[in-house]
Structure formats: structure tokens, C-alpha cells
């Protein structure tokens, strides 16, 4: 064998020479798969218009990412699927009655302002979908607080805000005014209530969450500590007398499950240590409950997650693992 020729074929790299086949791409598609049940339920409940909003939002965020990277002459990374996740999550936290241009504006804000300007995937300091939802909520509050009843199939093009459709009070809005919601708890858990496209069905969100936990895409610490904190605070400080029912309502209505399972767990904007994740989840839970109980808004999930996103570096530093070792400690034994 010709050694010289042979050696040319050899690659020399620094070890390790093995790599787990999982990539950012597969993790993002796991999240997309986990969101299928909730999205499907949203389409089933709110009709064809919900499907159009979802697809439009996903397409728009991919297009914005590709366009930005193309014009900035940097590698186009839409293949990693993170833009698809952002687009889908944003659509899922909008009501079905929003005008069709609204998610596109939101995607622009999420992808260009929050994600790409900060340096692209991994560099953003707040979750793009959450930030875009907060932005839309502050810019067009009436669009984002008008919820339609389940089953009321809206026309695709019409004069928004659909004067002739039935407006529905969400369970959380009812709680805000101090009433028990008119809906049955069973309907709330199943998702037969008013709300945004993706948040209504707790069952579907939990199915997605179990998938992510089984695949180990998401670790249990953040969802458990987030939901647990909300449950504990609602149980200890109930806003009304029906304690058990009330706790269940706090957990299963509004955006808590969508936020706790899919948004607070976004890798980029959550802590890297296990104990840090517990603290982060608990912080999200406390802020959510404080906003729901004392704030002006009926819902506080997106604000809570955004605030905790900004504290991730400090949580990481606070929970920095203790270095392996300590000869001094054991020397005497």
C-alpha cells in the first residue's frame, strides 16, 4: 500500500471522535411534534382559520429568518427548525379572531428584533415567541383580548373584529372579576372553552409535555416547579372559597401549561443547572400568581417568563456547581 497516498486520506482532529447523533435540529423537531396535539385541538375547536394562522405564522418566521441571514450574508440556519418553533408558538398564543397580518408583524418582531439582532439562535436573551406576544399585546390589546367561543367557525377574510360572532369570556377573565367561570371544569381541562388557539386544551398540552419528558428533550425541573408553585400559592392564598376547584382552574385555564411546558423550557433562555431550573420555575410561578391576583391583567404567564428570562445569568451564577474535588476535606480520613 502506498503510505503517502494513504495518509492523505486521514483526518486528524482533537478527541472526542464520537458524537451523540442528537442535534439542535432533532430537538426542535421534537418540540414541533410535541405541539401537534395542542395545535390539532386548536384547529378542531376554532376552525380552518386557526390552521391558516398557524401555517402563516410558521412560514413568516422562516421567511424572515432566511431573508435576514441572506441579506446579512451569514449562513442561513432555518434548517435547524428553531424559526418554525417560534412561529408555531406565537400562533398558538394568539386568539383565532386576530387579523391575518398580526402574526406576521409578531414574527418580524420575534425573529428580527429579538433573535437575529442579538446574534441568532442561542444568543437571544428572551424567548422570541414570548417577547413577540408581549409586544403584540401592548401594541394591539383589543385584538389580543377578544376571544371567540369554541366551535364558532370564523370566516377567513372579513371585517375584523367580526362584529357578529359570539365573544366569550375566558375562565381567567371570569376569575379576575371574582366570579366562578360559567364553564364546567371538565370542559376547561379538555379545552372546550374560549382562549387562544393553543392554550385551551390542557389534555393535549400535557400529552405533548409527556412526549418531551420521555424523549428527555425537556427536563422535569422547570414545568414541575412552575406549575407546582402556582398550585401551592393558589392553594394557600385562594381568591375565593372553593379551594380545590379554584386551584384546578388556576392550573388548567389560561396559558400556564403552554407557558410552563413549551415556553419557559426554551433552552436558550432558561438556566443550565438543575437547581437553577427549579429556582427559575418557582420564580415564573410566583410572578404569574402575583400578576393574576394583583395585576391589571387576567393572565401573567408571558410577563413572568420574560422577567425570569432576564435573570437566567444570575440564576446560573448563583447555582454554579461546586467544583469536583477538595483534597483538604478528605485528607484526614
Amino acid at each position: 500500500m502506498n503510505t503517502k497516498e494513504f495518509n492523505k486520506a486521514l483526518t486528524v482532529t482533537s478527541p472526542p471522535h464520537l458524537k451523540n447523533p442528537e442535534t439542535t435540529h432533532t430537538l426542535m423537531f421534537d418540540v414541533l411534534i410535541a405541539l401537534i396535539p395542542a395545535s390539532a385541538w386548536g384547529v378542531y375547536t376554532f376552525g380552518f382559520r386557526a390552521l391558516v394562522l398557524i401555517l402563516l405564522s410558521m412560514a413568516a418566521s422562516v421567511a424572515f429568518e432566511a431573508a435576514y441571514q441572506f441579506f446579512m450574508n451569514i449562513p442561513v440556519t432555518v434548517k435547524d427548525g428553531s424559526a418554525l418553533v417560534t412561529g408555531l408558538l406565537l400562533a398558538l398564543c394568539l386568539p383565532v379572531s386576530v387579523p391575518l397580518w398580526l402574526p406576521v408583524v409578531g414574527d418580524f418582531f420575534a425573529i428580527i428584533v429579538v433573535k437575529q439582532i442579538f446574534g441568532g439562535i442561542g444568543k437571544n436573551i428572551v424567548n422570541p415567541a414570548i417577547a413577540a406576544r408581549v409586544f403584540l399585546f401592548l401594541a394591539w390589546p383589543d385584538h389580543l383580548s377578544r376571544f371567540t367561543s369554541p366551535g364558532a367557525s370564523l370566516p377567513l377574510f372579513a371585517n375584523v373584529p367580526f362584529p357578529d360572532t359570539v365573544a366569550s369570556a375566558t375562565p381567567l377573565a371570569a376569575l379576575k372579576t371574582g366570579d366562578m367561570p360559567a364553564d364546567d371544569l371538565f370542559d376547561i381541562v379538555l379545552g372546550n372553552v374560549g382562549g387562544t388557539i393553543g392554550e385551551v386544551s390542557s389534555v393535549m398540552l400535557i400529552i405533548g409535555g409527556i412526549y418531551l419528558l420521555v424523549r428527555k428533550t425537556v427536563r422535569w425541573q422547570i414545568p414541575v416547579s412552575y406549575i407546582g408553585t402556582v398550585a401551592l400559592l393558589s392553594f394557600v392564598f385562594p381568591r375565593m372559597e372553593y379551594t380545590f376547584n379554584f386551584v384546578a382552574l388556576e392550573l388548567f385555564s389560561g396559558g400556564l401549561l403552554l407557558g410552563a411546558i413549551f415556553m419557559a423550557t426554551d433552552y436558550v433562555t432558561s438556566p443550565v443547572t438543575r437547581s437553577g431550573r427549579l429556582i427559575y420555575g418557582a420564580g415564573c410561578g410566583i410572578i404569574t400568581v402575583v400578576i393574576r391576583f394583583f395585576g391589571n391583567y387576567p393572565e401573567g404567564v408571558s410577563f413572568a417568563i420574560m422577567i425570569m428570562n432576564l435573570l437566567v445569568w444570575y440564576i446560573d451564577m448563583f447555582t454554579r456547581p461546586k467544583r469536583f474535588g477538595g483534597v483538604e476535606k478528605n485528607a484526614g480520613k
Binding site: H17, T24, L27, I74, T77, Y267, V268, R274, R323
Partner: peptide
């Protein structure tokens, strides 16, 4: 062959922190 992306970007998933036997923060 080990895939190397030319533009690797840490997504802060924290796996390296959980795996590090010396309890460091590799990310």
C-alpha cells in the same frame, strides 16, 4: 464521520453542565 457545523451556536441546553464529571460549566 463526526459532523462539524461551521457555525456552531450553543443553545444553552445545559447538557454539558449536567454531564461534566468535574462539575464545571463547560458552556
Amino acid at each position: 464521520r463526526k459532523r462539524f457545523s461551521f457555525n456552531p451556536s450553543c443553545i444553552h441546553c445545559g447538557r454539558c453542565v449536567g454531564h461534566c464529571p468535574m462539575h464545571l460549566m463547560p458552556n
